[in-house]
Structure formats: structure tokens, C-alpha cells
Design a protein around this nucleic acid. Structure first.
Lengths: 97, 97
DNA sequence: TTCTCATATAGACATATTTATATTTGTCTA
DNA sequence: TAGACAAATATAAATATGTCTATATGAGAA
């Protein structure tokens, strides 16, 4: 089982803008311009946040012509949170319908 | 359902010392002196980290004479991670025996 | 009350983080 | 190839964080 740097990952998650970006990307892949349109923040700042998320493998990217599309790496997120939940003896409730 | 400040909570979790403290406290309650003995860090620094953890309700404290004992607030942690897991559509694997 | 132990608070300092503006790189199209 | 557009990188400023030493507070013991 792969080893994760939990400090790095929690740091990446510890920012409102990055939480929002992850939330957007968890629904569909998006390019930087599209992501930017949801924020007051400048494009270089959003790019910077994307690099931080990419740096701990929470998101992935692919180029399509001029655009670069980002998406959540769901398998990594599942894995990381699985590790944390077991390590901290967390009981996660089943969601009500 | 109670509202949590996830930025604050992830910030609190995004530090190696605090992760270690939580790990220790998840096994048994401890006072500051005992916690300190497991670290190279100074007592005021450990106290500072405890304040940060307490500030987002991840731990609780009780005084017993000269000592102050700290413990994990497991119900809060379960609740927070439950929220995150649902919000981010995370699938947590069942632990193998 | 005075001493001592346990813990918290204050202040200072170095480093890290967030954000912006300016610029560069990469890719398509005319 | 030149121009336009998408995105990344460089640099700098403001703010936040982690850590220390020194000091204060709080509680039991003498």
C-alpha cells in the first residue's frame, strides 16, 4: 500500500479556494479558465492552487489543444481518507437516503 | 447537524506534531508533561499545538489538581470526516482483518 | 503564606503561505 | 511565420505559522 504525506495533503485541503476547486472538479473536469470564472481570484493564483493540489496527487491534468483539463483523482482521495479513517479509528455513518 | 469550519480543521491536521499528538491521545488521555516527553519540542510549543486542536474542538481537557488531561473528541472527528467523506463522494474500504 | 510543580501566555524571530502583477511558454489558426 | 489565446512561471508584498525563551498563572504541599 502506497505511502502518503498526510501533512502535505491536509495542507492542500486547508484552504477555502482549493476546497472549492476540488468540489467543482469532483463533478466534472474543467480547464483553468472555467475554474477561474467561479472565483474573484486571478488566473495565476488559481494555477498556483492547482499546482499545489497536483503536487500531492489529488488532481490530474490532460492537455487538449490550448486547454488543460483538470480532474479529481478519486482513487487517491479514497485511499488517503481510508488510511486516515482507519488510523484515527473513525466511524463514518452511512448516509441516509 | 452541526456546521464545522473545515479550513480550520484541516489546518489543525496539517502539522506533523499535531498529528502525533492526536495519535497519542487517540489511545489514552494524557497531560501536557507526558505528551512533551514524546517530543523534542518545548512545552510552550506543545501547549500551543494543544490550543490549536482545542480551538477546533478536536480535543477536550479536564483539570485534575496540578495536571490538565487532554483527550480526543472522537464524536467530533467521526462527524467531521463523515461530512467530508459524503461531500467528496469518498469510498472508504472496509479494513481487512 | 511560601515553595514548587504543571501549564499557559507574551514577545520575538525565521520561515511558509497566499496573493497579485508582469512575463514567458505552448498551441492553434490565419 | 505572426497573432491570439490558454496557462504556467517569476517575483514581490502582506500575512500567517511554528518555534523559542522568558514570564505569569494556578494548584497542591510544607
Amino acid at each position: 500500500m502506497r505511502k502518503y504525506d498526510l501533512v502535505k495533503i491536509f495542507k492542500a485541503l486547508a484552504d477555502h479556494t482549493r476546497q472549492e476547486i476540488l468540489s467543482l472538479l469532483s463533478k466534472e473536469e474543467m480547464n483553468v479558465t472555467d475554474i477561474c470564472s467561479g472565483f474573484k481570484t486571478s488566473q495565476p493564483t488559481i494555477s498556483h492552487h492547482l499546482q499545489i493540489l497536483r503536487n500531492c496527487d489529488l488532481i490530474d491534468q490532460r492537455r487538449d489543444g490550448k486547454n488543460i483539463y483538470y480532474c479529481v483523482r478519486q482513487e487517491i482521495i479514497n485511499d488517503v481518507f481510508g488510511t486516515v479513517v482507519r488510523k484515527m479509528r473513525i466511524k463514518v455513518e452511512i448516509r441516509k437516503k
